[in-house]
Design a protein around this nucleic acid. Structure first.
Lengths: 157, 157
DNA sequence: TATTGTTATACTCTATAACTATA
DNA sequence: TATAGTTATAGAGTATAACAATA
């Protein structure tokens, strides 16, 4: 086996990103576990915390989670009494999502732990490096959205 | 719903990375599909192409794929006659992996397509931006490995 | 007729234990 | 006894179709 056995793949941003993200995911999963959360449940809880009264369909769009998959995650959080679903007065099909007092405590502690984790993962990067990384990642995300939109346009002319 | 409903999560590199990687993954999956490949099968094929005679356990370590999961991927590639498994002469437990002529053509065409995709996803980034991004991602991957090693040390003092 | 939330289902990727055959 | 490859299996995460209640 040669010195850099994945040299062809290492030229691609996607490959480096998959590996860097796998490292982050493993670490943040371990960080969240003691709080009773996973990446998905944590991000759902946090977005509801930031947007009281949010509907499930809105949450689904924000976090790019299909509505059917969101139902189970919300069932879990509701079962723990960390969020509440209350029927919307103006549209009785929809639920308004809110984080309970208990859920707020869990969410805030978890956010502190995740912030620590994030700092650790960025060790060796300057503030400018971090900022540039955020910008580059946002650019890539947006490039992906564009090419997806293009495909949509092509398939429905 | 507020203007930036995921503002808390957007502060974290992991969140931006998950979204950027999801965009890349969706795009590269669509790019590879016409070649009969997925991300996993493509990366396996490419690493074998770069390292003829590689053993499955080595491949497993390089790509961070558990050996049992690799077996099915190799079965698939072997079934397509894109790779060959031949018993090693010096160790009759192991297989030597090689890409067939047919597999080489598929792999090279796919690599050209993935290179295109990679360029598209990096649209708007300068060569220096790209270079910095590679370095930052490698740094994060390595930070992840360190914290994992630390945990290992702690659990076996 | 369209939308909100839901159920059922299937597919991919990942992870672990236990087996076989060789070493 | 240890290692290489394999089998079986289970768990996440993700995706789509179809349904009931409501708009």
């Amino acid at each position: 086996m040669s010195e850099r056995p994945d040299r062809t793949l290492r030229r691609f941003l996607g490959y480096d990103m998959k590996r860097a993200f796998a490292a982050i995911q493993a670490d943040v999963t371990a960080v969240l576990a003691p709080h009773g959360l996973r990446m998905l449940t944590y991000s759902v809880l946090t977005v509801i915390r930031d947007n009281p009264g949010l509907r499930q369909s809105q949450l689904s769009e924000i976090l790019l989670i299909e509505r059917p998959n969101l139902v189970l995650i919300l069932d879990e959080l509701e079962g723990l009494d960390w969020i509440s679903r209350t029927r919307a007065r103006d549209d009785r099909r929809a639920y308004e999502l809110r984080v309970t007092l208990k859920g707020r405590r869990v969410c805030d502690r978890a956010t502190a732990a995740v912030a620590d984790h994030d700092t650790r993962m960025a060790d060796g990067l300057t503030a400018a490096d971090r900022q540039a990384l955020h910008l580059a990642l946002n650019r890539i995300e947006s490039n992906g959205r564009s090419s997806h939109d293009d495909a949509d346009q092509l398939s429905r002319p």
